[in-house]
Nucleic acid binder design. Structure first.
Length: 957
RNA sequence: GCGGAUGUGGCGAAAUGGCAGACGCACCAGACUUAGGAUCUGGAGCCGCAAGGCGUGUAGGUUCGAGUCCUAUCAUCCGCACCA
């Protein structure tokens, strides 16, 4: 009886579906475990072997936890709204709903082949009205909330309003516009429109005018994390800054908690670091400088992290977009400044980043140094960003690289306040130098001077200590069709939320996706939409993915997004698996939404993911062929087009070698007839070739000729009878012909072998190039394992005999190793442990049911189909997952007795006979009972016996 | 420039501070075969006929003992990047 994985795997996949094996109920009597994959965006490209890596890992862990007695929630769904589907619609005229359907069906078909244990009854898409109803609902709650900085949490906006009626906004300064100040009577005096305008400045989801990343090619605004290096993440189109009225999430109010929360979660250091950098907290001071000859009482406010360097200020710089530029520029400088502003406007974000030119212009105005009274010129330059701090800086050239270069370029004299630490040639950003020329700070070490300077500044009431965050509020609207509509109507420029009962506000069907008038989205073209004055923007992709982990807990609930009972039972996601590319997008947003839902009391925890694992990327291992390029007599170039010649990589590498030249000349004559070729013009063009027609590095010549019509007559110059391809590790991509389709592997080796091999490749977190060859080894292992149970000729070989001591030892050791590895998330060693176990059992010729049954259970997470089949063939009912994970009997782990060295006070003295894998207690007993040791110790018992694995015993006297 | 991660055979890799290279690929030999790109058995880090020596990027340090811990350095990959 041979192992027929094709039939067996299909059978079990059908049985699992029919029996509802993976259906999970909210059963409070069992301990829970929540394993979640980052749900996919269903793109049309189809899966390659890189995609299922994380899904396989989470599947193994989910099955393992279930065997360990947990009620495991392991769902899957689709992040179905988003830009690419809409771009596809514009390019091909296929409605996003249709292409998304197709892609999801295709995706599901591919996933089902691999045999995952998802509870599909809980599945949904973010584009389902039943789902986005609650995305819209949460948005309305964000709209209806403000952040109480005193209490450190979000509260309903009505509470703010009633507070305004009692005491104005003195205790709650306006986060949107700090200049808005009023008392109770002031508030009562405002008309309703003004009141709404003010409240908008407090809302956690607010609409306001702001500088946004505008992408003309995509016709939409993008969030900061969707812009990489000045171009759009999707498509790589140019992005410019533009002032637009947009929806935002006030994520900056959560900056501090997003930072603190990182200490309570188990993410990789790299991930925490990335998020910390993105939030970009810095400590410093805001300082107000009076301005010379400027008539108004207005002051120039700068932000600095180094108030200790205040006596080194040689000039001030304000961002070109700063409102003061207009006001303070003197008539003499007016022309130059205007010219400069035009220049700055003309530069795209990208040019600005790429060129890093030193540019700027003097405004003609001067600030007055608050301590020395000196007049300091005020410049404007694009190196100061309007969006950070106050958009203005005090420049200290001796301590800051950029300030120094600027001073040099514009020949501004540099004041040295750090003596020898500054060499006059480059700035020194140290905090350890001793200050000079610094009045009351003279003689102090810089890092100590920071606090003293701040204190003095605060005393003089010219500034305050200030914490700054680099993170900006998140742009939340897109001028797009394929997203959640905002449940908002506009009446006389006042945003009015829809009533909850009107949710979901369904996305209307359209067949034209072009942008609406004046930079509005496609929804602006629908008269039924604009007739109701509905908001025409839609929400960004991250809206639906910010809370989806909660919906799986209670997916069919029509009363609420997720009942409190369900979210209390399932709690945080215990294990979240996905790519690291979502570090500053999805992960930050969903952390913020979770904190918000917690603040308002709808869930009981404020971090969504307890532990996060980032699976590595599987790179493609590309293969190359080398086409010979010829020049010579007659129509040789035309001939080489019709009958291209490919040279094996080893020969192509030696293109100047005379022997290779001879070989080529000979081959050309053979293939083309008697041509003379110009040896000086020989070259090779490397071309990607489909990895699927290459075995290792050997090209399958027949398959290559069939691959593309232009290669039908291809000829080859071989080395040692083979065509050897070149190789390079690159991103896995269709374009590079280096993708490997999991379905092909499943068909050839079975899902179990494929799953195990994908794990066997190496640690889940590590990126590594794909190599198909090794799968044979795992395939052999599976057949070897099968032969413990069934023989090709003899049929059933497993017996009811009683196992020997050696066999028990073998299986328990294997269980221990597999369990430890799985627990540590080290699935490659887990697979190895199973392989070693099977090798040993084969050597022992062990076919005993009582041993093999345990093997099947620990195999179940890794090779679920095979495990189920064997479990049933041995006469068990139900799913193997409902068996208990076998407990390890310690006594079987104790093995042979060996001599071990013993060290007393650090010196190796003697050797003792101690059982391999003896416990600490056993070792102590043996040491204390040993006469030789006691003699050395003069009969005194040792203070401590340290047993170091099975190699060494340390005795401390 | 700043931050993070990783450096172990021909390759993927393993190793609570305790026999480095388990397990697998590729390779070699043998068995069975008309055949082998099937299957099984065995071999194999490197140098050396051998005894033996050398070995975890490099240089130091801690330790009875270091791939593992500490310091410096180099290389590769990833992330951020005018953030004052």
């Amino acid at each position: 009886m041979e192992y027929n994985f094709g039939d067996i795997e299909k059978k079990w996949q059908q049985r699992w579906t029919a029996d509802g094996t993976y259906k999970v109920t909210n059963d409070p009597s069992k301990p829970k475990f929540y394993v979640l994959d980052m749900f996919p965006y269903p793109s049309g490209a189809g899966l390659h072997v890189g995609h299922p890596l994380g899904y396989i890992a989470s599947d193994i862990f989910a099955r393992y936890k279930r065997l360990k007695g947990f009620n495991v929630l392991h769902p899957m769904g689709y992040d179905a709204f988003g830009l690419p589907a809409e771009q596809y619609a514009i390019d091909r005229g296929i409605h996003p709903a249709v292409s998304t359907d197709d892609n999801i069906a295709n995706f599901r078909r591919q996933l089902d082949n691999i045999g995952f244990c998802y509870d599909w009854s809980r599945s949904f898409r973010t584009s389902d009205p039943d789902y986005y109803k609650w995305t819209q609902w949460i948005f309305l709650q964000l709209f209806d909330s403000w952040y109480d900085r005193k209490a450190g949490r979000a509260r309903p906006i009505t509470e703010l309003e009633s507070g305004f009626g009692k005491s104005g906004n003195v205790s709650h300064p306006c986060p949107g516009d700090p200049t808005i100040r009023f008392d109770a009577s002031g508030w009562k005096g405002f008309d309703p429109a003004r009141k709404q305008e003010i409240l908008m400045n407090y809302r956690l989801a607010y609409c306001g005018l702001g500088e946004v990343n505008w992408c003309e090619a995509l016709g939409t605004v993008l969030a900061n994390d969707e812009v990489i290096g000045g171009v759009s993440e999707r498509g790589g189109y140019p992005v410019v800054k533009k002032k637009l009225r947009q929806w935002y999430l006030r994520i900056t109010d959560y900056a501090e908690r997003l930072l603190e929360g990182l200490q309570t979660v188990d993410f990789s250091d790299a991930m925490k670091e990335m998020q910390t950098n993105w939030i970009g907290k810095s400590h410093g001071a805001e300082i107000d400088f009076e301005m010379f000859r400027y008539p108004s009482a207005e002051k120039l406010r700068v932000y600095t992290t180094r108030p200790d360097t205040i006596f080194g200020v040689d000039f001030m710089v304000i961002a070109p977009e700063h409102e003061l530029v207009e006001k303070i520029t003197t008539p003499e400088q007016r022309e130059a400044v205007d010219e400069y502003l035009v220049y700055v406007k003309s530069r795209s974000e990208r040019e600005r980043m790429a060129e890093k030119k030193i540019t700027g212009c003097f405004t003609g105005a001067y600030a007055i140094h608050p301590f020395s009274g000196l007049h300091i010129p005020i410049w404007t330059s694009e190196y100061v960003l309007a969006g950070y701090g106050t958009g203005a800086i005090m420049a200290v050239p001796c301590g800051d690289e950029r300030d120094f270069k600027f001073a040099q370029y514009f020949q501004i004299p540099v004041t040295n306040i750090i003596g020898e630490a500054f060499n006059g040639l480059e700035a020194n950003p140290t905090k350890d130098a001793i200050l000079e020329n610094s009045d009351f700070l003279d003689g102090l070490v810089m890092k100590d001077a920071i606090l003293i300077a701040i204190r003095k500044i605060e005393e003089k009431r010219i500034g305050i200590r200030k914490v700054n965050y680099r993170m900006r509020d998140a742009a939340f609207s897109r001028q797009r069709y394929w997203g959640e509509p905002f449940p908002i109507t506009w009446h006389n420029s006042i945003a009015v939320p829809l009533d909850e009962k009107e949710l979901p506000l369904e996305l209307p069907y359209i067949d034209k996706y072009g942008p609406g008038p004046e930079g509005e989205g496609p929804l602006a073209n629908i008269s039924a939409w604009t007739a109701r004055h509905l908001e025409t923007n839609t929400m960004p992709g991250y809206a639906g993915s910010s809370w989806y982990f909660l919906r799986y807990m209670d997916p069919k609930n029509n009363e609420t997004f997720c009942s409190r009972a369900a979210s209390d039972y399932w709690g945080q996601v215990d294990l979240y698996i996905g790519g690291a590319e979502h570090a500053v997008g999805h992960l930050l947003y969903s952390r913020m939404w979770t904190k918000f839902l917690y603040d308002r009391g709808w869930i009981g925890y404020d971090e969504p993911y307890k532990r996060l694992i980032n699976q590595g990327m599987i790179q493609g291992s590309s293969r190359f062929v080398y086409r010979l390029e010829l020049r010579g007599t007659g129509d040789i170039e035309e001939l080489s087009r019709q009958m291209p010649i490919f040279v094996s990589s080893g020969l192509a590498a030696l293109d100047n070698n005379p022997q290779v030249h001879d070989l080529i000349t000979q081959a050309v004559r053979e293939f083309y007839g008697n041509y003379d070729i110009d040896l000086d013009f020989i070259s090779f063009t490397p071309l990607h070739v489909d990895v699927n027609i290459v075995d290792g590095f050997d090209l399958d010549l027949t398959a290559f000729r069939q691959w593309r019509p232009e290669y039908a007559n291809a000829q080859f110059i071989l080395e040692e009878g083979k065509y050897i391809c070149g190789s390079e590790v690159e991103k896995m991509s269709k374009r590079l012909y280096n993708t490997v389709n999991p379905n092909d592997l499943v068909k050839k080796y079975g899902a179990d072998a494929y799953r195990m091999y994908e794990m066997f490749l190496g640690p889940v977190e590590q990126s590594k190039p794909w190599d198909t060859k090794g799968i044979e080894g795992v395939f052999r292992f599976i057949r070897k394992l099968w032969r413990l149970f069934y023989d090709e000729t003899k049929g059933k070989v497993w017996t009811m005999d009683t196992a020997t001591e050696a066999e028990w030892k073998c299986i328990y050791r294997t269980i221990k190793k597999a369990e430890d590895a799985t627990e540590r998330f080290s699935f490659n060693t887990g697979v190895s442990a199973l392989m070693i176990g099977v090798n040993e059992l084969t050597d022992l010729k062990c076919h005993k049911k009582e041993v093999l049954e345990k093997l099947v259970v620990i195999l179940a997470p890794y090779a679920p189909h095979l495990a189920e089949e064997l479990w049933h063939l041995m006469g068990n009912a139900g799913s193997v997952l409902d068996a208990a994970y076998p407990a390890v009997e310690e006594r079987y782990l104790v093995e042979s007795v060996k001599n071990y060295p013993i060290a007393i006070n650090g010196k190796t003295r003697t050797e003792l006979n101690i059982a391999l894998d003896a416990t600490q207690e056993q070792v102590e007993e043996i040491v204390l009972a040993d006469e030789t040791v006691l003699k050395w110790l003069d009969g005194n018992p040792p203070k401590k016996v340290v047993y170091v694995k099975n190699r060494m015993i340390n005795v401390v006297v």
